[in-house]
């Protein structure tokens, strides 16, 4: 495994994304639209519901964005890339790329929700740290499931069914941590939750890296 390869693959992904601007635009529009719907549907948003709504929109826009991470490329192009790179490098670059996309989504979402409703975040450092750790975990799960499904025809149906139960533990932890960042609850022991979340991320990441080489040739 070489970092140079990972870097090249990452650059390739970003370049493709940059060329097909409509995908990025669609994700941004999805986020803004759902924030707007919430603004219209909820007359008054409390910090508690803000917290949950944030994660739900985050989840579904992330699902929308990441669903194509393995099916977007043509299979021939795939074969070519697989000739050149180690499978571990491919999944690593995908996970990093998807984490970046999810972080971008979350920043846009924070801005859009704050613009339309309220901005209840008190502890930005904790909130952003939680979002980053959550992005890593969720993107690892989504990327792995997308890799499992690969080029299957029923992919979009199965994707949500397979990936949503997997991220529930991460999501529950995230909601608890961000509730702290919004000062809804006050838990002095939040550090252990962050460490637990980081641990889950690390384990999922490790398992995805180990298993993917068995999957990629299918």
């Amino acid at each position: 495994m070489k970092w140079k390869h990972v870097w090249t693959l990452l650059r390739k992904d970003f370049l493709i994304e940059w060329k097909e601007k409509y995908v990025l635009g669609a994700i941004v529009l999805f986020v803004i639209l759902s924030s707007y719907i919430i603004y219209k549907a909820f007359q008054q948003v409390t910090p508690m519901s803000w917290n949950v709504l944030f994660w739900i929109i985050f989840l579904f826009s992330g699902l929308n964005a990441l669903i194509r991470s393995f099916s977007s490329e043509l299979s021939r192009q795939y074969l070519y890339i697989y000739q050149l790179a180690h499978p571990g490098e491919i999944i690593l670059s995908k996970i990093i790329y998807n984490t970046a996309v999810l972080s971008l989504v979350s920043i846009i979402l924070i801005a859009a929700l704050s613009l339309f409703t309220i901005s209840p975040i008190n502890d930005y450092k904790l909130f952003l740290l939680a979002v980053l750790l959550g992005s890593i975990g969720i993107s690892t799960c989504f990327t792995f499931v997308a890799a499992v499904l690969g080029q299957q025809t029923s992919q979009s149906v199965l994707m949500s069914v397979l990936s949503l139960p997997l991220i529930i533990p991460i999501l529950l932890l995230l909601i608890k941590i961000t509730a702290n960042a919004l000062s809804i609850v006050d838990d002095s022991n939040i550090m252990s939750d962050l460490i637990l979340l980081g641990g889950i991320d690390l384990i999922l990441f490790g398992v995805a890296m180990i298993i993917y080489p068995f999957l990629w040739r299918l």
Binding site: C141, F144, V145, V148, L149, G150, L162, L166, P169, L196, G199, I200, I203, L204, V207, A208, I211, F214, L215, L218
Partner: peptide
Amino acid sequence: LSSAYNIFAFITIVP
């Protein structure tokens, strides 16, 4: 596919 998913699923069950 199901073997890969199974391993991943068990790993998420533990936490």
